[in-house]
Design a protein around this nucleic acid. Structure first.
Lengths: 114, 114
DNA sequence: TAGGAATATTCGATCCTTCGAATATTGTGC
DNA sequence: GCACAATATTCGAAGGATCGAATATTCCTA
C-alpha cells in the first residue's frame, strides 16, 4: 500500500485524536446539531469548538448545513460511527488496563506538578 | 461519558495517527514479526521504528515477546485490526475526495516550497 | 568474558497542535 | 442601513510529536 494512502488514514485518526472531537462526533451520533448546541452541551469556548469543527470539516468527517443564522453539523459517513462503536467495545474490554493507564498519567503529571 | 474515557480513546487514535505506525499494524495483521523484520520491510531507521513501537507498546496496542536476541511483536486485540479494516472500507468509499485532499496537500506544500 | 547482533533510550532540533483573546464574517429583523 | 446573534478565522504562546545521531542495554557465541 502506497504511503499516501497511509497518510490519508493517519490523518483521519489524527482528526479523531482529541477528546473534544470525539465528544462532538458522539453527540452527533443522535442526529445533527447546530454549532451553538454543541457549544452549550460541551460547555467550552465558542472559538475552541469552532476550531475543532474546522478540523473535522477539513477531513470531511462532518457535513455542515447552513440554516439562516446557524450551521448544523452531522456525521458524514456512518462508518466513522462504527469505528467509535468498536472503540467503545475495545474500551470496555480493556477497562482495567485503561484505568491503570489513566492512573499512570495522573501520577506522572502529579510528579511533575503539571 | 466522563472526559477521562474520551481521553483514553483519543490516546488510542493518537497512537494510530501516524503512517508508519499504521504500516506496522498492517504488517502485523498477518502474524507476529520481529523488530528487525519490521525495519527491513519498512526500510526506515532502526531508531525510528523502535520509537514507533514504543508508542504502540505504551498504548498497549501491541504485545512483545522476547526470544533470545530478538523481540517479536503482535497486535494485542483483533478489534484494532477491525478498526483498520473499517478504515480501508471508508477509504475505498471516499477514494475520490481522498485523492482531492491529497492533491490539495501537494499543492499547498508546493506553494510554500515544502 | 569479549565482541557483536538486536533492540531500546536519550538528546536536541524542528515542526505541529491546542488554547483563549481578539477580530472578522455572515445572516436577521427592525 | 444598523445592531445584534451565530459562527469562523487569525494570532501568538505553550506544550507535544517526530526525526536521526549517538549511546545504552541485552543476549548470544566463540
Amino acid at each position: 500500500m502506497p504511503d499516501s494512502l497511509r497518510r490519508f488514514k493517519a490523518d483521519i485518526f489524527q482528526a479523531l485524536a482529541h477528546p473534544t472531537r470525539i465528544a462532538i462526533i458522539e453527540l452527533l451520533d443522535d442526529g445533527e446539531l447546530s454549532a451553538g448546541e454543541l457549544i452549550d452541551k460541551l460547555g467550552m469556548e465558542q472559538a475552541n469548538i469552532s476550531q475543532h469543527l474546522a478540523v473535522l470539516r477539513g477531513k470531511q468527517l462532518v457535513a455542515n448545513r447552513k440554516a439562516g443564522n446557524q450551521v448544523f453539523y452531522s456525521v458524514r459517513d456512518p462508518i466513522i460511527l462504527k469505528v467509535l462503536a468498536l472503540m467503545r467495545r475495545y474500551f470496555q474490554k480493556h477497562l482495567k488496563e485503561a484505568l491503570e493507564m489513566l492512573d499512570e498519567m495522573d501520577k506522572a503529571s502529579a510528579g511533575t506538578g503539571q
